[in-house]
Amino acid sequence: MTTPANRWRDTPDRYGLISRLLHWLTAAQVILLFGVLLAWKGFGEHPVTLLLARIGPHGSLGAMLLVTTLLRAIWAYRQRHHRPPRPPGVGGLLARSVHLAFYTLLILIPALAILRQYGRGGHLIFYGMELLPEAEREIAWMMAPADLLHSPLAWLLLALIAGHVAMALAHRLWLKDGILARMLGSPQATRDT
Rank of each mutant, 00 (worst) to 15 (best):
M1G: 09
T3V: 12
W8Q: 02
R9F: 15
R9N: 15
D10R: 11
T11N: 15
P12M: 00
P12Y: 02
R14P: 03
G16W: 02
S19K: 07
L21G: 13
H23L: 08
L25K: 02
A27G: 03
A28H: 04
A28G: 12
G35C: 05
L38I: 14
A39G: 05
K41C: 09
G42H: 05
G42A: 11
F43T: 14
F43C: 04
E45P: 14
E45K: 12
P47A: 07
V48Q: 01
V48A: 14
T49I: 13
L50C: 00
L51Q: 01
R54H: 11
G56N: 05
P57R: 06
H58P: 01
G59A: 08
S60N: 07
G62K: 04
A63T: 08
L66H: 08
L66G: 04
V67Q: 06
T68H: 04
T68P: 01
T69K: 03
L70F: 15
L71Q: 04
A73K: 01
W75H: 07
Y77H: 15
R78W: 10
R78T: 09
Q79I: 11
H81L: 09
H82K: 04
P84W: 07
R86I: 03
P88A: 02
V90L: 06
G91S: 05
G91K: 08
G92C: 02
L93H: 08
L94V: 15
A95C: 02
R96P: 01
A101G: 10
F102N: 05
L106S: 10
I107K: 03
P110M: 06
A111W: 11
A113K: 10
I114N: 03
R116L: 10
Q117P: 00
Y118P: 00
R120H: 03
G122V: 09
H123S: 14
L124N: 00
F126A: 12
Y127D: 02
G128A: 07
M129I: 12
M129A: 09
E130F: 08
P133F: 10
A135G: 15
A135P: 03
E136S: 12
R137D: 02
E138W: 01
W141Y: 14
M142G: 11
A146V: 09
L148Y: 05
L149E: 12
S151R: 13
A154P: 10
L156V: 13
L157R: 04
L158H: 03
L158E: 00
L160K: 02
L160C: 04
I161Q: 01
V165K: 04
M167L: 14
A168K: 02
A168I: 13
A170P: 00
L173E: 07
L175M: 09
K176I: 10
K176H: 11
D177G: 11
G178A: 05
I179K: 03
I179L: 14
A181E: 05
A181Q: 07
R182F: 01
M183T: 04
S186T: 11
S186M: 12
T190F: 14
R191T: 15
D192A: 07
